[in-house]
Amino acid sequence: MTTNTVADVDLSGSATTSAKLTLVKPKRSAAGKVLDFLGSSVINLVLALVAIFWLVPTVGLFIASLRDSTDNSQSGWWTVFTRPAQLTFDNYAELLGNPQFVGSFVNTIAIAIPTTVLVIVIGALAGYAFAWVEFPGRDWLLVGVIVLLAVPVQVALIPIARLFGTLGLFGSIAGVVIFHTAFGLPFAIFLLRNFFTQIPGELMEAARLDGASDWRIFSRIVLPLGMPAVASLGIFQFLWVWNDLLIALIFTNASSQPVTVAIQGQLRQFGANIDVLSSGAFLSMIIPLIVFFAFQRYFVTALLAGSQR
């Protein structure tokens, strides 16, 4: 009962105090039914239009990725509806045969997976300390972490570029992983600490009475029980790093660049490169989309836990 009409408000409104009437579904007048129908069809229409607006750009690029460069430079993707014969997988075949593109794909994986693992491990350790180890200055330190939640990466670009230059990390995948890990940590600690504090304290006390060490409590109780939170953080962090452009743009070179930077580099000759750009963009989207649709629930949980990065 989400849609209400004037007609049934009139019916029930006259008898607000009668609990009986609220249980009986008010009989709807013909006019009320018509209004309901009109209301819902307008809503359906509006949302259908919105859905089309949201889909057309992606569908268009997908179709463009299935056309060769001559077609793409002469006519729009919508001509497939009259001339479906032009569709081809050549762009994908060519891109997957291009060692540089495949290399950038491997680089993206080599950046995203270690970062995600590191952020989870380091964040979980710190989250446990903040949730279950009472130590002097704990609240003060936690406030510090919350302050760091919103620090813009821009502030770190110049200093870290210098630092990595000195350490020889500039242009290496390891450097990008370290950078992403550091900037992923405040959110990771915040999220995991919040979940860990919800674990019942009796479990911890019982384990301590049995002589369990903190490490044992962390690895045998807190981590297994906090798995949903770890999954949420992992999905969120993975997508974040996979999709990053800025940090990779600065800290990688031609041999260590991820897909986003490779695609960005092709943008300079946009008109001539639509076939490469569109298929490259779609290849770069496949894994995030699979992860997203498979683990959507966890991703939403991470968002709800308050991301302000």
Partner: peptide, 18 residues
């Protein structure tokens, strides 16, 4: 919700084409 999953670079290519 789907566009939240893809990179802004891919979204940029999509919009530049559109």
């Amino acid at each position: 919700f789907m566009p939240m999953a893809i990179s802004m670079v891919a979204a940029g290519v999509i919009f530049r084409t559109t």
